[in-house]
Design a protein around this nucleic acid. Structure first.
Lengths: 113, 113
DNA sequence: CCGAGTGTTCGATGAAAACCATACACTCCC
DNA sequence: GGGAGTGTATGGTTTTCATCGAACACTCGG
């Protein structure tokens, strides 16, 4: 049959084209998720597992944040052994919401978030 | 002294340059405020008073939403007689967050917000 | 097969935000 | 000055969301 090696349910993804603006904005209007997106943008694709982020929340909340980012078409996930590795959907998301990712990724003038 | 005609406290404004990205995103991540911004964008400047919006909330909540929009550098308000008229800070906001307003103002592909 | 590592799900808790109804302040016009 | 129109402030309710702890699945290596 399929050449699937994992017996685990694949994570549900939403393509950026199916994401309303409101959902995209709401997904990015959170300091933890902004940090995740930024760190993800500074790393090669598929190089970061969910647990490998320096974020001040427990792993339950972290899992929830990744679900939100997936639902907003911002990240794609793939199972790699026991880990789940991530990729920022730069091109696709930027095609749907031009300039939005750039706003989040650029450094802040003063400092803050 | 001053040539002020109103004895009412002028509304506090925040310039877009002083607004963190997170605050801008949070301000726009609300369906009522998105509608306000859109209606405002489709009207001449200073032509709309706060109460003149077709929005499904009471006037207390409406006043709160305008305070949020002011704090995010999105709208400017001025007293005109008993009314308080509004203006969308298009150029200034776009200079600080290029493309963000355009994303909110463009029509949605499918329908939703 | 067992144990360590990783991520998700569940239930509950706490904080933040939206909302309303009321009361108040101000401006204008009669 | 009185009254209608307009917006803000306050207090309290409801909803939403982020978070945690604990329990559960899955993968891999010994």
């Amino acid at each position: 049959m399929a050449e699937r090696t994992s017996h685990r349910a694949a994570p549900e993804h939403t393509h950026p084209d199916d994401v309303p603006v409101l959902a995209a904005l709401a997904a990015l209007a959170d300091p933890v998720r902004i940090q995740l997106v930024r760190e993800l943008a500074g790393s090669p694709e598929w190089s970061r597992s969910c647990g490998g982020f320096d974020v001040p929340v427990g792993k339950a909340a972290l899992s929830h944040h990744f679900a939100v980012l997936r639902g907003a078409g911002l990240v794609e996930q793939r199972d790699a052994g026991p880990k789940r590795v991530n990729r920022l959907r730069r091109a696709e998301f930027d095609a749907r919401f031009p300039g939005l990712l750039a706003l989040v990724l650029r450094a802040e003038p003063a400092d803050g978030i």
